[in-house]
Every structure is written in structure tokens, then in C-alpha cells.
């Protein structure tokens, strides 16, 4: 196994010594990249999708290329990084770190472009499963449980934000660091057990929390009276029926669309017909 030569940390804007592998990213560069990752989708569009965002995030690292911001290497690298790209926004930080490393390692452009293209699929599907389909609903359901248990507005809102962003920011920071560490060997980072199995465990926890949270949240939202009052019994009886109906109608109508129609009927009944 080839020994990695670690270069001393250069100041921002200074080129890395040629022929040496880059050491840790300078703190300022890393902080700048991480901050920019929060705006990675700022120019998301149907032409190049997230391409401009990747270029925007990688750019601070590219300043360390020979010649700095006025050099040909910088311009060529920035042009490459702004091409079409798509990935989950949080896991895109893995790509940002790995691509920055590959550029500073002066990887041949053809190899780098192939690597860049290959990243899109895995980073998209893994991020969707981990964040949108597991972590986000799990945090929402914990917030609903807090509400159901009687927590106040500050506790519910901050509880949700702290919990969600602990995962969110950790994922982005880990991604940037792991991407930089592994470079073109990113597959080993993507194969991490917690990343592959995480969605499954989070989804199971979320399902259990959901089951407990919904009755408590519904009970509090109708006023929290005795559970044998007619309205409480109606909620207990009708909610599962509506839920099952919506599952059966999956793909034909969304729940929020159906609810809008039902509420429109309720308004009509209560204001005109009643």
C-alpha cells in the first residue's frame, strides 16, 4: 500500500506543493465549503440540476491548485465541477469532499468525470432513503409525540429543530470529511454499515413512535377531554377508516388533496346549509 505523504496545511489561497498528497483541508477552506454546502441547491435548475451548486461548494478548495484563482488548472477544474450533477443535497457533501480531493490530487480529467457521473445515483437514492423517508418523518413524529404529551410551543419546535439538525449537520460535516479522506475510493465510505442500515433502524423507530404519537396528538388537539366523550370516540373510530381509505387510494389521490375537498364540504355545510 502506497504511503500517503501529508503536506503541511497551506494558508487559504496558497497552492499545495506539487507531487504531494493534500493533508487535512485548511480550516478556513473546510469551513467555507461546509457553509456553502448549506446553499448547494441555491441554483438548482432543470438544465444542469445541481451542477452549479457543486462548483460553488468545491471552489474554495480549487484555489489551492497551482496558479491559484488565475491559473488554468483552477478554471478547468471549476468548469468540470459545474457540469450536470444530481444527488441528495445532504450527501452531496460527500461528493464535494471527494471531488475537491480528486481535483487537488490532479486526477486525470477523464477519470474524474467518470467518477463524478457515477456518484449521482448512489448519493441520490441513499440520501432519499436515509433523510427524506426516514430521518425527517422520524423527527416530525417525535415532535408530534412531544405535543401529544403536553409540551409547549418552544419545546416542540426547538425539540424538533435540535433533533433534526443534529443529524442533518452531522451528516453534512461527516460527508465533507469522509469525501476528502477517501477521494476516489468513496465506495468504502458509502458502504458504511450505519449508512446502509440506518434507514431501516430509523424507520422502525419512527413507526413505533408514530403509533404512540398519533392518539396522544389527536387527543390533545381536540381539547384533551374525557376519552369516552362522543367526539373522542368518533376520532378513534373514524381516523383509522380514513387512513385505510387513503392507503387504498394510494397513487390516485393524495391525502392533503382529499382533506381539502372534505374541508370545503365542511365549510359549505357549516356556513350555508346548516
Amino acid at each position: 500500500m502506497a504511503e500517503t505523504v501529508v503536506a503541511p496545511t497551506p494558508p487559504t489561497g496558497a497552492p499545495l506543493p506539487t507531487g504531494m498528497r493534500p493533508g487535512p483541508l485548511p480550516v478556513g477552506t473546510r469551513a467555507s465549503m461546509l457553509l456553502r454546502c448549506l446553499a448547494i441547491q441555491g441554483a438548482w435548475n432543470y438544465e444542469i440540476l445541481n451542477g452549479n451548486g457543486i462548483g460553488f461548494c468545491v471552489e474554495p478548495a480549487l484555489r489551492h491548485l497551482p496558479g491559484g484563482v488565475d491559473g488554468d488548472a483552477y478554471r478547468a477544474a471549476l468548469a468540470r465541477q459545474c457540469a450536470y450533477f444530481n444527488a441528495h443535497p445532504y450527501l452531496a457533501s460527500l461528493a464535494v469532499g471527494a471531488l475537491a480531493r480528486a481535483e487537488l490530487d490532479q486526477t486525470p480529467p477523464e477519470k474524474l468525470v467518470r467518477f463524478r457521473t457515477a456518484l449521482c445515483g448512489p448519493l441520490g437514492s441513499l440520501g432519499d432513503r436515509l433523510v427524506w423517508a426516514a430521518w425527517l418523518p422520524a423527527c416530525s413524529l417525535v415532535a408530534l409525540l412531544l405535543f401529544g404529551l403536553g409540551a409547549g410551543p418552544a419545546m416542540v419546535a426547538f425539540g424538533f429543530l435540535v433533533l433534526y439538525n443534529a443529524g442533518h449537520l452531522a451528516l453534512r460535516a461527516w460527508g465533507l470529511g469522509a469525501g476528502w479522506l477517501h477521494g476516489l475510493r468513496l465506495a468504502s465510505a458509502l458502504g458504511a454499515n450505519w449508512l446502509q442500515r440506518g434507514p431501516q433502524y430509523i424507520a422502525r423507530g419512527a413507526a413505533l413512535v408514530a403509533g404512540v404519537a398519533l392518539p396522544f396528538a389527536a387527543h390533545r388537539a381536540i381539547g384533551g377531554g374525557a376519552s369516552l366523550e362522543p367526539v373522542s370516540l368518533a376520532v378513534m373510530a373514524c381516523t383509522p377508516v380514513l387512513g385505510v381509505l387513503l392507503v387504498r387510494l394510494h397513487g390516485k389521490v393524495e391525502g392533503w388533496q382529499l382533506l381539502f375537498g372534505l374541508l370545503a364540504l365542511l365549510v359549505l355545510y357549516s356556513t350555508v346549509l346548516h
Binding site: R129, A133, A134, P137, L141, L144, P199, Q200, A203, R204, A206, A207, L208, V209, A210, G211, V212, A213, L214, P215, A217, A218, A221, I222, A234, V235, C238, T239, P240, V241, L242, G243, V244, L245, L246, V247, H250, G255, W256, L258, L259, L262, L263
Partner: peptide, 30 residues
């Protein structure tokens, strides 16, 4: 509340369906 909770219940059922035992855990939790 029936409308909102019904949508949430169906959403949990649909979103978390991809993994084994999630639906059973949801029903047990309910």
C-alpha cells in the same frame, strides 16, 4: 383532527412500508 390524523396514519403506512416489521410496529404503537 380526524382528517389530519387520518392523512398522517396513511402517510406513515405508505412512507415506512419498505422495511420489515415497520407496519407491525406502527399498529402495535397505535
Amino acid at each position: 383532527v380526524i382528517g389530519a390524523a387520518g392523512v398522517a396514519a396513511s402517510a406513515v403506512w405508505k412512507v415506512l412500508h419498505g422495511y420489515s416489521v415497520t407496519r407491525r410496529l406502527f399498529v402495535a404503537g397505535l
